[in-house]
Design a protein around this nucleic acid. Structure first.
Lengths: 135, 135
DNA sequence: TCTACGGTCTATAGCAACTATAGGGTCAAG
DNA sequence: CTTGACCCTATAGTTGCTATAGACCGTAGA
């Protein structure tokens, strides 16, 4: 029955974020202005947490705040014309798919390095650059 | 026979980077100090291009410059003890694998949005946040 | 030859996305 | 009733670029 609402510190812990960062996102309009308690403390709900988690994960994936804003608008603006949505999703999808490929190449190479270490010696022919920066 | 070596502008074009960014990376020690031409122009080789491409791709994937530095050291420090390498690769691998999962969820949702648009109407139940910010 | 232009140089200032600090108010526990 | 952990606003500092100023280099056309 957690009806009480989250304080900013609770939200920060739940989304693995800094308190100041949350206030910063509010300031730039990326998070909606929350309600306030009698003591003038910000109060948040589950929707705010979901939104913040999304923002943080996307930031960790290399999206800019403007790109994230666009993705969030895509999410909320339910009556948006499809031509526009298609354009935006197509662009982001191409971007996302290339990121996945890069990361998979990097993961393969990290696993290879780790495996080649099992003998207990030293790594001798690391191709980590090749993995992700092909000629 | 392209023996001449790349000028900074050539390198920037080849790695889709700004000239100033290259000089910045040199300043902070992420790119080695290059040779100079008679006219005091920086000259680069294929190895520098590979390194720069790696850095730019990793940045696009949300790694910090310090993390990239660590990955690059992993690549060059061929006589490094394996226990240490294992620790570093394991950490980065876990990180990379979570990023891949996040991106795959995001890609699925972007495709779904795009597909649900085919009728030519509007998107009506976007779950883009759910995709990447599960409760 | 000269001169126009595009590229390079150093140095510095500004911007995006945080992050840390100062100075103060709130509140539950001891 | 005070101590400690939290919250508030406001501002300055950090990271990772990016833009600008003012000057030098190099080559192609008049």
């Amino acid at each position: 029955m957690h009806r009480t609402g989250l304080k900013i510190g609770d939200l920060a812990r739940a989304a693995e974020t800094k308190v100041v960062t949350i206030r910063y996102y509010e300031k730039i309009g990326l998070l909606p202005v929350p309600g306030r308690s009698a003591a003038n403390y910000r109060t948040y709900d589950a929707a705010a947490l979901e939104r913040l988690r999304f923002i943080r994960r996307c930031r960790g994936l290399g999206f800019t705040l403007d790109q994230i804003r666009e993705l969030l608008e895509l999410s909320s603006d339910v009556a948006r014309p499809c031509a526009e949505v298609d354009e935006i999703t197509a662009n982001h999808l191409a971007d996302v798919e290339r990121k996945i490929e890069d990361l998979q190449a990097l993961a393969r190479e990290l696993r290879r390095i780790s495996a080649s270490c099992n003998g207990g010696g030293t790594i001798s022919n690391c191709r980590i650059l090749d993995a992700i920066a092909p000629g």
